[in-house]
């Protein structure tokens, strides 16, 4: 059983919004000082893969496509239990559109050979488009399920809980298949200290666009016609004071009750 997890490096989406600067003239978003992380939804996908590895045994390979990928950031996936890491890095991959990322991933998968299951996060915390995984499924022509919150392997098939509004659907598919994973799966486990050291020494595969035969003419960048800061969300917060937490609580009740 070989599981591929697609992981994108993004500026930490949990960073306070004051850290994100929008330049409307250059149409650039500056995230200076915001640490790069593995896209949290891709971390959820990795967690789902590691649970299958715990349960059934599997080889988990993480692949990342981008430009200026920090290997240190991606190596975290090895520290938590992934077996191999493939980084496909090229200046041409800066701000790629979802369909182009899916195309590059498909070329990398050709080089990687056989696989049974591909897991991706539901969307990436930078552009929040939610397209790459589904488009990759189309390119590969394999069964695809969107938004799952649990994944299991039973009798050589994948069984997953697909999220519906106020419900879930239990679905089953032949392998290979591609599933996009939602955060309900749960957070990625913490690295084990011993593995952490190994993870930084372990050889990884670093490929260029040429290594996997990417046709540059097929690459399309995200292209904005305008970029603006978000609407002002600020309100003047009146802090409720009191000598003790209890008193603050009572004062809040009086204010809300009094209207």
């Amino acid at each position: 059983m070989k599981i591929i997890v697609c992981a994108k490096q993004v500026p930490d989406p949990e960073a306070p919004y004051t850290a994100v600067q929008v330049n409307s003239d250059t149409k650039e978003i500056s995230t200076k000082g915001v640490a790069p992380v593995i896209n949290p939804y891709d971390e959820n996908a990795l967690e789902a893969a590691l649970r299958i590895k715990d349960e059934n045994g599997a080889e988990v390979v993480v692949i990342s496509v981008g430009s200026k990928i920090s290997q240190a950031v991606l190596r975290r996936s090895l520290a938590v239990g992934a077996d191999n890491l493939v980084v496909v890095d090229s200046p041409q991959f800066k701000s790629l559109d979802s369909s182009s990322i899916a195309y590059v991933l498909s070329k990398a998968l050709e080089k990687m050979g056989e696989y049974d299951l591909i897991l991706t996060g539901r969307q990436a915390g930078d552009w929040d488009l939610g397209q790459t995984g589904l488009i990759l499924g189309e390119i590969l022509g394999i069964p695809t399920v969107n938004l799952v919150r649990s994944v299991k392997i039973e009798d050589g098939k994948v069984v997953a809980e697909k999220i519906l509004p106020g419900a879930y659907e239990l679905v089953k598919s032949n392998l290979p298949a591609l599933l996009t994973v939602s955060s309900e799966v749960g957070e990625l486990r913490y690295p084990i200290a011993k593995r952490k050291i190994q993870a930084y020494k372990q050889p990884i595969d670093v490929w260029s666009a040429e290594d996997i035969g990417v046709d540059s003419d097929k690459l399309v960048q995200i292209d904005m016609s305008a970029l603006m800061p978000p609407p002002d969300m600020g309100r003047d917060c009146q802090f409720i004071e009191g000598d003790s937490p209890e008193e603050k609580g009572k004062n809040l009740a009086s204010i809300l009750k009094g209207g």
């Binding site: 989406p13 919004y17 994100v20 915390g125 930078d126 929040d128 904005m224 016609s225 603006m228």
Partner: peptide
């Protein structure tokens, strides 16, 4: 028009 970066910016796309 679409919020991006978790709502930290708003982009307009025209393809």
């Amino acid at each position: 028009t679409k919020p991006v970066y978790g709502g930290n910016a708003v982009a307009i796309f025209k393809y």
